[in-house]
Design a binder for these strands. Sequence first.
DNA 1: GCATGATGC
DNA 2: AGCATCATGC
Length: 501
Amino acid sequence: GYYLKPLQASLIRAGIQPKGWAFDAMLAGYVLQSGRSSYPLPDLVQDYLGERLPTEDTTGESGLAAYTCAEAAACLRLEQVMSQQVAAMSCADVLYRIEVPLSEVLARMELAGVAVDVAYLHQLSDVLEALLRAKESEVYTLAGEPFNIASPKQLGQILFEKLKLPVGKKTRTGAYSTDAEVLEQLAAEYPICRSILEYRELSKLKSTYADVLPRLVHPSTGRIHTSFNQTVAATGRLSSSEPNLQNIPIRSEAGRQIRRAFVAAPGNRLLSADYSQIELRLLAHVSGDERLLQAFADDRDIHAATAMLLFGVPEEGVTPELRRKAKTVNFAVLYGMSDYGLSLELGMSVGEAHAFIENYFRQLPGVRRYLEETLAFARQHGYVTTLYGRRRYLPEIHHANRNVRQAAERAAINSPLQGTAADIIKLAMIDLDRRLRQEGYRARMVLQVHDELVLDAPAEEVPALAELARECMSGVARLRVPLKVDVEVGDNWAEMEKFMG
DNA sequence: GCATGATGC
DNA sequence: AGCATCATGC
């Protein structure tokens, strides 16, 4: 078949649970070349069969029948060719044990949807509107005139020409940058910058979330049914759209008010299970670095443990500031840090950042070895892989332009880690979905947010479900480090409490 | 349609 | 600084 998920959803909605889905050409296309922007069937037919699918003429009934038959025939032949190639690049497990079975799980999740409190969102929208108007007046007063705050061009003119604030960085096109980093720098001395930041936050919350989410509530289910896209992210992650439920605010207090709108069905509770530090645990596993492995074996606070190593202080000497620096370095490693990037982040010179990184590698030599081996592999083969064999091609690893080449090098470091984490949670979703159905749970998996699964569950199922989710998620891979899973339970997605057990 | 800037992991 | 989606301006 081709793009089976909608078909699977239709069948499931009709109460039919077909088994033995064998092949999906769209998913095969994704596994073979995850960097493509999309996988239209005519393109796959052209690229893998060297043929042209007849042009779509579905005006009449006979035209529709003929085109549908041509599609079906093409899929059968695509399976022969693509399956061979998938096997030849050792991606059979990724396609047949991960992506194909996951498709049906995603269909079930999309059908289940998630409940939102619409009345609450309307109320919140009105509050945001009032706060926004007040903040707008505040900005106009500080600027000495009204203007469109949402226009970066007008805002740049007001701040850097009229008010003569010191110019920070410029954008790629040479305009004054007014992004949060620039405004944050200026905010201590110029209150208007703080006001603009607050205006931006409120504006984002209202226009992207409070005003849009209620419109996407399905009239018959009363729930929001996102799309989980399986072929978008080059690393193997899922994405979510219409609406994106993978970027619901959590960090700011105002943002968390949006999250409160995501609720359990009546009589139910929301259960969230998330992997703790999965990417750093994977770094420990694939690098085999002794100290990193030991830190996770001891279930240490990894950023604090890193701070002890980097700064040579005892546990009680780890100040919040040192821990924050160590945390930044840990993330920088996952993203394939350059000393330049780290220097910007930590506000130090490139030389200091370089010394920082050298110190990190001296303390964690296994990590350096892994990063060097991964880069060498990418340069030699032109791709990198996850633990389960998922491949990402990096043609720009030999690019003549240094910036382009270095971006590819960072992707070479990051993709195996981000992609392996994606493989693992996908496997866990398949397993958990099977267990939920086999064991007759009424709970439904409703969201996946990269390292987190959210279930909408009858209150009485919560204790057993917490155990089941933990078991599925941490048991799905046997690594040199434990996969720690934290479980939280609550009536809404903002107010969750740790679940012990 | 691209640029910018917001949100998440 | 890795990976995404969405709103807005122009």
